[in-house]
């Protein structure tokens, strides 16, 4: 199954841990996982767990506008994309969960 996750809250929120744990578990079960970070969710790009998820085959995209507004620099392995990428995720997944 293809799972999409939208995260709009910053890392101090427990949503971050939930997203990390769900993504890990889903990958272990062989599901494809795509995460889109926007609004304050873009602050999560610097969490090492997200880099690990990306290394483990989770596709992670960030709203580049929100990142620019918050002065967040680019991170290897994470796409600094656009709302178009979110639309592609929404269209391509079997389930989309939002955390915000």
């Amino acid at each position: 199954m293809k799972l999409g996750i939208l995260l709009t809250s910053s890392p101090e929120n427990e949503n971050t841990n939930t997203v990390i744990e769900i993504s890990r578990a889903a990958r272990e079960q062989g599901h494809a996982v795509s995460i889109f970070l926007m609004y304050d969710g873009v602050y999560n790009v610097h969490k090492k767990e997200f880099a690990q998820l990306a290394g483990n085959g989770v596709s992670i995209a960030v709203c580049a506008l929100n990142a620019e507004q918050r002065k967040i620099g680019k991170v290897d392995g994470i796409l600094f994309g656009s709302q178009y990428d979110h639309a592609c995720i929404a269209q391509g997944v079997d389930r989309l969960i939002s955390f915000g």
């Binding site: 580049a64 620019e68 600094f80 656009s82 178009y84 592609c88």
Partner: peptide
């Protein structure tokens, strides 16, 4: 005049 757009719009259009 928005740098992220110059990267993302062409990529999306190619898609």
């Amino acid at each position: 005049d928005h740098a992220p757009a110059v990267e993302n719009v062409p990529r999306s259009l190619k898609n």
